[in-house]
Design a protein around this nucleic acid. Structure first.
Lengths: 178, 178
DNA sequence: CTGGCACTACACAGATCTGTGTATTACCTT
DNA sequence: AAGGTAATACACAGATCTGTGTAGTGCCAG
């Protein structure tokens, strides 16, 4: 049952924003009483945190060469941008919406971005680039920039521009793609 | 008086989010009655739109060579990220917070991003790069990515990583920096 | 069959929010 | 001095929100 709550909370929170969705709405959407919802989560705030926490679990794995894996990742981005219901990065949106800089959402958002960056970094180390630290951050900027641009422009193809830029940066660092 | 309202609305809306700030709060902050505020703006929604509209007016001008101007721009970013009260991109945040995709905020956000991109594009044309269309978009991705990263990581120095990436992309396109 | 558990229905408190209505006061221009 | 403009104070309607309290219902294990 907590999972069903989280599924619905995810859809509504991500699709409409944290403050825009009330607990009544969530409970009604599932078809449970508000009391039941509060028996599983002590507060709306806790539900929001659990919603973000649930979005942490996912990092792709593959055996292709690093350069190829990274470019593939940008192609995955384009599909994500095109899927209906796309509304930008859930973590960035949450941080932007919650004014308190000490809110737990900040840690979770940071952890997510750090996870993704680490994935890049390991691949870059394997590709023996000179500065995996710096380059992994640069790739993250392209990813997050593409997400913001796709949200504002409502155009999934910005992912392609991000992929092209990534290719340039990787090539300049001596990475090959096959 | 409308300007004083907009100044305060800007500070509060940008600093805490659109939904997080009520018109009572804005009026109280200025020290005017809510009635006065509603005599200048017909609704909170109109005030939000005016707040975003007011943020449209600003594009830097300079006589330095294009490559240098662009790199300078990324240094300006770092200063902006470090200024207290930095809370990401007002336009992206607004789009993320307003679920309605037909809200006027979307057009304004798009116009802003398009303005900034055009500034890049003109500089790149002047630098005679092969694809100013594509490269200007790539630079925009770095800017927006840096904004998101600076917000989540609470670290202004990500602007430097963006600047480094921009330098690589520009160099690969044959742009010089002096 | 019975006890316990989870859920439901529903009302409610208390806060907050947008927007309006109204009567009054300060100020500036003529 | 008079009149109009704009601001004020303040109450209020009506909606929405989070969170709680309470009494009752269905179900499953022992």
């Amino acid at each position: 049952m907590p999972e069903r709550i989280l599924e619905t909370a995810d859809r509504l929170f991500y699709g409409q924003g944290l403050r825009a969705v009330g607990v009544d709405t969530i409970a009604a959407e599932i078809g449970i009483s508000k009391r039941t919802l509060y028996n599983h989560f002590p507060s709306k705030d806790a539900l929001m945190v659990a919603y973000l926490q649930r979005r942490l679990r996912l990092v792709p794995t593959s055996t292709k060469p690093p350069g190829r894996q990274i470019l593939d990742d940008f192609e995955r981005l384009e599909r994500a941008f095109g899927s209906d219901g796309f509304r930008g990065c859930a973590f960035v949106n949450a941080v932007a919406e919650l004014k308190d800089p000490r809110h737990a959402a900040n840690e979770i958002a940071l952890a997510f971005k750090e996870m993704r960056r680490q994935w890049f970094r390991e691949l870059l180390k394997r590709a023996q680039v000179a500065d995996p630290e710096g380059l992994s951050l640069q790739l993250m900027l392209l990813v997050d920039g593409a997400i913001a641009a796709a949200l504002v422009r409502r155009d999934p193809t910005v992912a392609r521009a991000a992929g092209t830029a990534a290719r340039t940066l990787l090539a300049a660092a001596g990475v090959s793609f096959n």
